[in-house]
Nucleic acid binder design. Structure first.
Lengths: 136, 136
DNA sequence: TATGCACCCTGTATCAACTACAGGGTCAAG
DNA sequence: CTTGACCCTGTAGTTGATACAGGGTGCATA
């Protein structure tokens, strides 16, 4: 498989594949006579693992740990669960934070009745620090 | 006000204040004889506006537009409402996306019963692309 | 007077996770 | 024989800061 095919097979940008290789997330594949990268099915599976993990929001370093575990099936897998659990907590935290943010934005938005900026409640709300504090 | 005082007054890192000046978000203040930056209350208000906007997740470019409106009170403020409304939509989209993510992470997490990585459901779930697809 | 300390200055490098070229090589079809 | 699709390396840019290195300033204290 050439890099373009791997790219299509996994929905990953070609530049991103080369980037993953450069940072050591994917092993360097063998090369053809023309110095083209040549991938096999193991590469495809590993890249799919990485993409799926990235889609779930794991960082590259977390994925490194997860791949390391995946490469050493005899090891204790408690780490994997720990990484995933912590990540889930972070996601939940982020959701809570965005929900607060949505509250405040909702209060700000839609209060502009087409006037001039001098009377704009949106601009006013952004400048007014007290309004933010008292709202919480 | 010296930069350290402005920093404490607005809860903004000193380096960040200088960064905002460098990218033209804050006007360059006058200097003391010793070449120290010297801020007034207008600077403080403008920085508070920026910080509040950043806390709400507006990008620097959006803040530039909002500040521009704030600087020209005679202009139509429909833009401000448009920027805030679009941002609210983006926040809502992000929340929805993170909620989906939380679903999948919840399914993955906690299935590890302390065995070895070979049997780990977390690792398995990450590698298994089909499981992800079918789940949606 | 010296000296220590907190504060300030500029300029550049670093972070995450990519993405986007520039400038060149390879290969098959028309 | 040339056009086009594909591949290569290496470097620079993105966002929103943050972190020095290497130096200057200003005030209190020994």
């Amino acid at each position: 498989m050439k890099i373009g095919e791997l790219s299509r097979a996994t929905g990953t940008n070609i530049e991103t594949i080369r980037y993953y290789e450069r940072i050591g997330l994917l092993p360097a594949p063998s090369r053809t006579a023309a110095n083209y990268r040549s991938y096999g099915d193991a590469h495809r599976a590993r890249l799919a693992f990485v993409r799926h993990s990235r889609d779930l929001g794991f960082t590259i370093e977390e994925i490194r740990s997860l791949l390391d575990l995946s490469d050493h099936p005899e090891r204790d897998c408690a780490d994997a669960d720990r990484i995933a659990t912590r990540h889930l907590e972070q996601v939940e935290e982020k959701i809570a934070q965005l929900a607060l943010l949505r509250e405040e934005l909702s209060r700000i938005v839609g209060r502009c009745r087409g006037g001039i900026a001098a009377d704009c409640r949106v601009i006013e709300a952004l400048g007014d620090h007290a309004q933010c504090e008292s709202a919480h």
